[in-house]
Amino acid sequence: MAYLQEEHQILRTSLRKFLEKEAYPYYDEWEKNRMIPRDFWRKMGSNGFLCPYVDEKYGGMNADFGYSVVLIEELEKVGSSLIGVSNHNDIVVPYLNTFGTEEQKLKWLPGCLSGDLITAIAMTEPGSGSDLANIKTTAVKVRDHYIINGEKTFITNGIQSDLILVACKTDPKVNDHKGISLILVERDAVGFKRGKKLDKVGLHSQDTAELIFEDAKVPVSNLLGEEGKGFYYLMEKLQQERLVVAIAAQVAAEKMLELTIKYTKERTAFGKPISKFQNTQFKIAEMATEIEIGRNFINNLVENHINKREIVKQVSMAKWWNTEMAKRVASQCMQLFGGYGYMEEYEIARRYRDIPVAAIYAGTNEIMKLINAKKMEL
């Protein structure tokens, strides 16, 4: 991996030590409690593991995306519910970092880096997910405030978030994407409340929620960038969001294979380890090949992304292919664990529950195929 230099490996070593002390021993407890404690976020911040790419003047390190890759990978190795941290680091805060005014950056970025501010992005609504241009949440300007009305759902970090980037229609008369703007809503905004914390099949400790805006009052100074440009900002940043999902899926597949190889070497049947059976060997060899293909594809994309190349088509391919590959690996690995794979005490059961949603969020895999078809001028 040419994009990983000595400083990236130093980060990986210190991050692993941190996670071995602060995450691995508590992860099962977090899953039972259905929440990652805020204290963990603050510890991540105090150790420099939040948003390292941000400029030094706001508390960051001016680091490249390679640092983000190391963070995504090591967090995923602990468990997929930590995707909420990657969502904050590499999906939400980049909007503020790129499009925010100096005043907005000074106000919020230091808290985003310290872990005192947890962020979320609110695009999906009960009636519109992939069809982003059809969102119904409105923001009407009344003197020096926006009045926001609408509902959002499936919002990552929805319960704990202190700063939420809300996609809304500031020009309701426009029926397509041109009327969309991005507005930053703070946790104590009048008229903003959380709906229920959603009970998911997997990702149990990653909080996901409904958000409700009933005449929510937000200062016009909380507009991110220009009015009506929200859709374009989203399109610009979705390349990285989908790459983050593809990287996490790749690491999940690698972790599941590692667990399964270890198990098949230890588990005996008919007087020998099940790793000695031809069927087991064939299945593992097939999975290892797909995972190797996925890893090479991801490494190539990360390098191109760091070099600021336009790789929307390739990232859409990776988001689709790598997440589907990880789902196949989860199914095959659980089968090789036999009955034990269905027991919650085995990590493979959690991994099997956690991976399917990767094919749904950040744009469904069907949408990824449509993007590719469009890029191929079909």
Rank of each mutant, 00 (worst) to 15 (best):
L243M: 13
K200W: 04
E236L: 14
E226V: 02
K217F: 03
I159S: 09
D176I: 05
E227K: 15
V245A: 11
I155V: 14
F192R: 12
S161M: 09
I164K: 06
D176C: 10
V220Q: 14
G150C: 07
I159Y: 07
E214V: 11
L203V: 08
S205V: 00
E186G: 09
K152I: 02
E214A: 13
E151R: 15
Y232D: 15
K178Q: 06
M235K: 15
S221I: 07
L198M: 15
N149P: 08
L224T: 06
E236D: 15
G158T: 01
L203R: 00
A167C: 13
N175R: 13
I180G: 07
I159G: 00
G202D: 02
V190E: 15
T156N: 04
D207F: 00
G202H: 03
D162I: 10
E214P: 03
K217Y: 00
N157H: 04
E186M: 09
I180D: 08
S161K: 07
I212T: 04
F231D: 09
G150F: 07
P219V: 02
G191Q: 02
V244G: 00
H177F: 10
H204N: 08
I212V: 15
Q206N: 10
I164S: 01
Y232K: 15
Q240H: 10
L184Q: 05
F154N: 12
L182F: 13
A189W: 03
E214K: 12
K152N: 10
G179H: 11
I159E: 14
Y146G: 02
Q206S: 06
L203C: 06
D199C: 05
I164M: 10
Q240M: 06
I164P: 01
K197W: 04
I147T: 08
V185G: 06
F213V: 07
L163H: 01
K229W: 08
L238E: 15
D199S: 12
I159N: 08
E151F: 08
E241K: 09
L165A: 10
T156E: 04
E214G: 04
V166Y: 03
G228K: 09
D171G: 02
G150T: 04
K237H: 10
G195T: 04
K197A: 14
A167F: 06
I148N: 00
H204L: 08
L198W: 00
K237T: 05
P219C: 07
E214M: 05
D162R: 07
G202W: 01
H204R: 12
S161Y: 02
D215H: 14
P219A: 08
T208H: 11
I155S: 11
Q206Y: 01
A246C: 08
L182P: 03
S161D: 01
K169N: 09
A189N: 03
V190N: 10
F231M: 15
F192P: 00
I155Y: 09
K178V: 00
K193N: 12
E236M: 14
E241V: 13
Q240V: 07
G179I: 07
L198I: 13
L234W: 13
G179M: 11
G179D: 11
G225F: 04
L224N: 06
L234A: 09
A209C: 13
L243S: 04
D171T: 12
G158C: 00
